[in-house]
Amino acid sequence: MRRPFVLLAALPLLATSACGFLGSDEEADIQVYSARHYDLEQAFEGFTEETGLTVEFLNGDDDELLERLKAEGEDTPADVFITVDAGMLWNAAEQGQLATMDSPVLEEAVPADLRDPEGRWAGLAMRARTVVYDPEAVDPSELDPTDTYAALGDPRWRGRVCMRDETASYTQSLVASLIDLHGRERAQEIVESWVANDVQIMSNDVELLETIDAGGCDLGISNHYYLARMLEEDPDFGVALYWASQEGEGVHVNISGAGVVEGSDAPEDAQRLIEWLATDGQSQFVDGNHEFPVNPDVEPEELIAGFGDFERMPVDAAAYGSLNAEAVEVLDEAGYR
């Protein structure tokens, strides 16, 4: 009768012994939770070469990493939290997970709207969510330069537009920015006009671009770097980029950014890494993914510089962060799916 209990008691021991060979290596100087997965290693190697500080990182989904930080509290091994959404940065700060950085370096390197006024996070890479089109089917002069996003609800685009699904944070933060700009009622009308235009919903941006290339849609909304990636592989890829709303509020942008974790045991080193990423490490951090540097002194890589200069909508992290739930409601109520 006792033996199964002995067996059962042995299980955790078995598991622990498994941990012996499964456990992690020696701890690095700086430990990073990151929702950004592109070529981080390369950038961190550059940092280690310059400073001698070692960095290790753990990739994950940003919402889940935030919950993990909250659950771990003071015990967290993490020193830096890198995420891919301004709203997420704002929420991480609001939920008390990010420490204040007092950093003249960041104030100098990062434009004011791309960092927290209280110094709890700073943007490090910028992406634009703009209109992409098939040059054989669309003349860019047909697009409304004052409010390009809203004008996609014009009946002339009926059945011709592709967009991303409502689960994409890209869609949510675009709609949150529309609510911020125009108010909820107008934002609702805009989304409804898209739906009335039989917008085709896609599950990812690459699929969206390929559908435009294949002739399934004439235009759509995509992150600029997915198009850059397609053009890098195939310079003849049949989709072109249009900077949205250049005579209006500017193109919608969002940022990847970072903050020092509240429970970090190496906050100075963590801040140093973030400062380095915003200055000397900018190109290494953004170029691998064809993103725009946040630091105005750093040039974007050639491929995306070829898209031309653009005016951007100011990033209102508090709005993106607090209006996201409302954006999901607007999308649902408009029947966007």
Partner: peptide, 25 residues
């Protein structure tokens, strides 16, 4: 379901979580 655009309850879990940045919701 996400790829095929079907709005099931587990999509709802995801939307509520993503939308509010808080698993509680």
């Amino acid at each position: 379901v996400q790829y095929f655009g079907v709005r099931t309850l587990s999509v709802g879990v995801y939307l509520a979580w993503k939308g509010s940045f808080d698993v509680g919701s």
